[in-house]
Simulated scan of single mutants.
Amino acid sequence: MKTTHIIPGDSAAGSLREALRIAGRDDDLLVFQDDLSCGPIADMAPSARAVWRQMDGWDIENSLHAFWLNASKADRLVVWFGRHSAREMAFRLAWAWRMAGRHYHVIDVTGLRVPVRWGNGTDGVIQSAQAVSIIPGNGLATLFGRERNVSANEDILNQRRWEKLMADNAPFRVVTADGLASAPIDHFDALLLAQANSEWKKVAFIIGNALGLSSDPYLQVGDMALHERVINLVEEGALIADGDPSEMRTCQVRLPS
């Protein structure tokens, strides 16, 4: 029986591909490319997500259709995630809801101590992992065989949690001490505005700083979602832009005088 590993996000997928190569495994890998920690989720159909998340060069609807179809056909499923990542945890709950009744395994990396070798060749240890996406492939390779079965009760609980979030249909979902929670559209605005002052700063700088500050103790949001909020803050007059704010590497912003 062939194993198919399920992972949310290209960053985590790259590390898991490396892990499979290091371990010499010929398992399959399916990547869920949507980020369910942001945007409307009342309608989970791929077509509905595609309408909201339009991106040049990516056929979102067909990509999501293919993911769920291939997952339903796989023999043995292993879902990787970390509970301290909003993106990974949102996918974990949505998976339980979408795949209700299907048997699968999980590898939850949350809090694991993982020995790694960094890109510069030095050895180190991740003392308490937050997410799959922050663990290098050589670290993930040490976790094969640690998957566990998911009980029917756990699955039902996760399905109900996702149904509650779907009913909320909030713009964001963020990690809290009690699990994933709905958050309003302006949840990260104060953090973004705190990175600006009266001097011109590139949008990429504002977003980069906000990303760093929103990653401890939980990985809460991605750069694309923050970029959208910067654009909206410019449109609302909370930030002044010199250039097109959709061009994060060239446009500069500052607080109004």
Rank of each mutant, 00 (worst) to 15 (best):
M1P: 10
T4P: 12
H5L: 13
I7V: 15
P8Q: 11
G9Y: 03
D10C: 06
D10F: 07
R21C: 05
R21F: 04
A23W: 07
G24D: 06
R25S: 05
L30Y: 11
V31C: 14
F32D: 04
Q33A: 04
Q33V: 05
C38Y: 12
G39H: 15
G39N: 12
G39V: 11
P40G: 07
D43H: 09
S47L: 11
R49P: 07
R49C: 09
A50S: 11
A50L: 04
Q54C: 10
M55T: 08
D56R: 06
I60S: 10
E61W: 01
N62Q: 11
S63P: 02
H65R: 13
F67D: 13
W68C: 02
N70K: 10
S72N: 04
A74K: 08
W80E: 00
F81W: 13
F81N: 09
S85Y: 01
S85T: 01
R92V: 10
A94N: 05
W95P: 12
A96L: 03
A96E: 13
W97M: 10
R98K: 14
G101S: 09
Y104A: 03
Y104F: 15
H105N: 09
V106M: 05
D108E: 13
R113W: 06
R113I: 11
W118H: 08
W118G: 04
G119H: 13
G119A: 13
N120I: 06
T122R: 14
G124T: 04
V125L: 09
I126D: 02
I126M: 05
I126C: 04
Q130A: 15
V132N: 14
I135W: 01
G137V: 01
G139P: 03
G139Y: 01
A141V: 02
A141Y: 00
F144H: 07
F144I: 07
E147T: 00
V150D: 01
S151Y: 12
E154A: 12
N158L: 14
N158Y: 09
R160D: 10
R161I: 11
R161T: 14
K164S: 07
L165V: 05
D168E: 06
N169T: 04
A170S: 15
A170Y: 14
R173M: 12
R173V: 09
V175C: 01
D178W: 06
L180Q: 08
F188W: 15
N197F: 06
N197D: 15
S198W: 00
W200I: 07
K201Q: 14
K202W: 09
V203M: 08
V203S: 06
A204Y: 01
I206Q: 03
I207V: 15
G208W: 02
S214P: 10
P217Q: 02
L219M: 15
Q220Y: 00
V221H: 09
V221C: 11
D223T: 08
L226E: 10
L226M: 12
E228A: 03
E228P: 00
V230T: 07
N232C: 05
V234E: 13
E235H: 00
G237R: 02
A238E: 12
I240C: 08
S246K: 01
S246T: 00
E247S: 10
E247Y: 07
C251Y: 10
P256S: 00
